[in-house]
Simulated scan of single mutants.
Amino acid sequence: MMASPLRLLLIEDFEDDALIVLRELRRGGYDVTCTRVETAEALERALDTGPWDAIIADYALPRFDALAAFSLVQKRGLDIPFLIVSGQIGEDTAVAAMRAGVHDFLLKDRLGRLGPAVARELREAALRTERRKMQEQLLLSDRLASLGLLAASVAHEINNPLASLMANLEFVLNPDEGDGPVQASSLPAEQQQALRDCHLCAVRIRDIVRDIKVFSRTDDKQRGPLDVHRVLDSSLRMAWNHIFHRARIVKDYAAHAPVLGNEAPLGQVFLNLLVNAAQAIPEGHTTPQEIRVVTRQEGTSHVRVEIHDTGRGIPPELQDRIFDPFFTTKPAGVGTGLGLAICRRLVDELGGELGVKSALGQGTVFHLRLPTAHDVNGPRNSFTQG
């Protein structure tokens, strides 16, 4: 039977006792990679280099003890199986340690159950992790549903007065619609231009309202052929206020097949990635900075979408964590750490893939592979760029 790998953080000041612990774990079927520490400072440094599968601590050390070590682990919010071993200890102390949250307590002269105890706690930790993921997914779904209801309500309230505004502007601007009380052609040129500007702004508001209504349909799971360029353009309009004072937009659309998807979740993904790209770029120097939106055909089976930015980039050690729920590199109060977790879940539900490549000081590229809709309408289906 192949040994199970185990990354162990061992808090122990006696080399002989450390060797006994390692021997029992190997006897229990573990291939142990161990780091041994003896002080709080060394423990802090070791926790920075994690992750760790388990922590085993001697109860009393010359400058440190197991309960203080456990407190440091708890303060970091880490859920790592934590077991205490001791030569001699009273029952009251053992009970207090377990009540504090320590996962198990063993005597050094009775380490025969160390292997099974570690195996049990690893299983329990895995179950806790799975429960947390399920709770996080429920939280994400609830937040999306709430945001969708709010967006739909706001869009509906804006739509009615907007329709009246556009109708009146068109009535004034269109001289072929009869003798209205005011004809735009009879107004000074400056006032005619002002009315035309108002009409253009109203059209933009109408497009934004339409985009909000599309993005708010979070409960619509139906998938079908979709013009990915139209969804990208809609997301770019929604993100414009975040982008225009930071970078210029470059479109490089070359895909020609429709993707199989749903407009609302795909639009949410694009919008989040575009806003993230804008926030990675400092304000005030728009000309040299750009956000490039690229689409490419990958055979008949997939369309690739890339969102490039010339921002600060993501450190290599964080690139595997940015899709974790509630992990964020943004300052407190700026980000919740949910955006990219939501994006990955939505892309997975659409049958696609979402990944990232980044280098510090050179920018970031988020890339999506989306299945084409050739199974729905045939492999030669195509659409025009928006």
Rank of each mutant, 00 (worst) to 15 (best):
S186F: 09
A40Q: 06
E136W: 07
D79M: 07
R304E: 06
A152K: 02
G335V: 03
D197E: 11
V37A: 02
G339R: 00
T336W: 08
D104T: 04
D17H: 11
S358G: 05
L140Q: 11
E44P: 07
L273P: 05
V228Q: 00
G28Q: 01
M166I: 02
L140S: 12
L122E: 11
R63D: 15
A42N: 10
E283N: 08
E44A: 11
E177D: 15
S216V: 00
A66E: 06
L260P: 03
I205M: 00
Y253F: 14
L61M: 11
M166F: 01
I291Q: 01
T328D: 13
R248V: 06
V334Y: 15
L195H: 03
Q135G: 13
I291M: 03
D79G: 10
R131Q: 12
F64D: 08
P161W: 00
L266H: 01
R223G: 13
A167T: 04
G351Q: 03
A194M: 12
A40G: 09
K213Y: 05
R45M: 12
H156K: 06
S86Y: 01
L67I: 14
A97D: 04
A332C: 10
H367K: 07
T384H: 14
R223E: 15
L22I: 08
Q135N: 11
V73I: 11
R344G: 07
A126Y: 12
G101L: 02
A69C: 10
T49C: 09
R204D: 14
A3Y: 10
C201P: 04
R26Y: 08
E306T: 02
L226E: 02
L144V: 06
I314V: 11
L114Y: 00
A119H: 06
E24Y: 13
C198D: 10
Q137M: 13
K357Q: 09
G352F: 00
